[in-house]
Amino acid sequence: MIPTIRRRTLTLAAPEAPGRPTHVSAASGLVRAGDWLYVVADDALHLAVFPAAGDAPGHTVRLFPGELPAGHAERKAAKPDLEALCRLGPSASFTHGALLALPSGSTPARRRASVLPLNADGTLAGEPRTVDCTSLYVQLERELVALNVEGAAVAGKRLRLLNRGNGEGGVDALVDLDLDRVLASLDVGVMGPEAVRTVRRWELGEANGVRLSFTDASPLPDGRVVFTATAEASRDRVADGPVKGSAVGVLAPDGTPVYLDAVDVPVKLEGVDARVEGGRVHVLLVADADDPSVPAPLLEAALPVPG
């Protein structure tokens, strides 16, 4: 079992909208860049930004226009459902790289991504750009039927997506996209099916009788990818359900799972940022309580795998 340390809760200096809480609850993706932590929440139109050190409240940056309904069911139906956040390296379009926030694609309303350029120090460099993922996701839905993208990480010349297979008919899968084609698509604001290289299905086992499914990903320098997985007893890819456990694992550069172990806290892990320090893999983790009144925690852990 992986021991974790609770570093803070994701409190905000001000709510993202009037009447909303002053914290992030449904944290679903995490990236550290420089001295900052960036978090997407699956029930928000904003990116949350926190200092990497200390527990000072964060602030939000709008990604999409408009407002979401206040009611839980109405908000769930209308939300963009951003589930994955990854860092892109420097390119012709992004001198110092960028953040890419990807939606789950689990309904037709959940197919808008957002890309945000970065400065050299990891701060945001400009306004976010909206990217339409519809044509890419339609193709992936043909392959996987129950599409539910939850993780993304750059691994070499690939952008590796993790599909979460929770619920009836769900399939856990690795989808490798051609990174050059992805970067070109961001320039025009449309991600298409021509970027797809491979789609592979995986089974991660169970926790307390419920299937473990991918929930996020973060790259390591040697091409490995750290991932989180959660066992949630939900009836389908949209509904929430009781969480029976969460785990952290590692994929080899070829995508094969080579390590997986449970964490010591009963949370629904949804976001991970991994880095190598002192020859070991260290991770920051965020969780989603599926309750808007509960602030999401930021946890940290060291994995018993070499860096």
Score class of each variant (00 low, 15 high):
231 A>P: 01
302 A>F: 08
93 S>T: 13
252 A>Y: 09
273 D>M: 02
257 P>Q: 07
50 F>V: 07
305 V>N: 09
266 P>V: 13
74 E>V: 04
36 W>I: 12
137 Y>H: 11
27 A>K: 08
163 N>T: 10
271 G>K: 05
47 L>I: 00
1 M>K: 11
42 D>S: 03
69 P>C: 05
230 T>Y: 01
204 L>P: 08
283 V>H: 05
115 V>S: 10
276 V>L: 00
82 L>M: 10
184 A>G: 14
266 P>F: 14
277 E>L: 15
152 A>E: 12
17 A>P: 09
231 A>S: 09
216 D>N: 13
64 F>H: 08
146 A>V: 09
44 A>V: 01
151 G>N: 02
168 E>C: 06
122 G>I: 01
200 R>K: 12
159 L>G: 14
42 D>K: 11
65 P>N: 07
48 A>C: 00
7 R>E: 15
51 P>F: 07
60 T>N: 01
95 T>P: 13
117 P>M: 12
154 V>G: 12
185 S>L: 00
254 D>P: 11
65 P>H: 05
260 L>F: 10
121 D>M: 07
8 R>G: 04
92 A>N: 07
78 A>V: 12
186 L>S: 05
148 N>F: 08
232 E>R: 08
168 E>A: 12
173 A>E: 02
217 A>W: 05
169 G>N: 07
153 A>T: 08
296 A>W: 08
30 L>A: 07
78 A>R: 10
55 D>E: 15
230 T>H: 05
9 T>G: 03
74 E>D: 14
218 S>R: 07
201 R>K: 13
123 T>C: 06
154 V>P: 12
243 V>P: 03
126 G>L: 06
21 P>A: 11
80 P>Y: 10
80 P>V: 12
148 N>M: 07
243 V>W: 01
198 T>N: 11
223 G>T: 12
21 P>W: 10
31 V>H: 09
171 V>T: 15
281 V>Y: 02
161 L>M: 11
302 A>I: 12
260 L>E: 05
61 V>H: 03
285 L>W: 02
5 I>T: 15
167 G>T: 08
148 N>R: 04
22 T>N: 13
98 A>D: 07
180 D>G: 12
180 D>L: 02
213 S>L: 04
16 E>A: 15
293 S>T: 15
45 L>C: 06
153 A>C: 02
117 P>C: 00
212 L>S: 04
178 D>W: 06
87 R>D: 02
103 P>C: 00
99 L>A: 12
21 P>V: 05
241 G>W: 04
89 G>H: 15
274 A>K: 09
290 D>W: 06
292 P>Y: 13
239 A>G: 01
250 V>L: 15
287 A>I: 06
102 L>Y: 02
210 V>K: 10
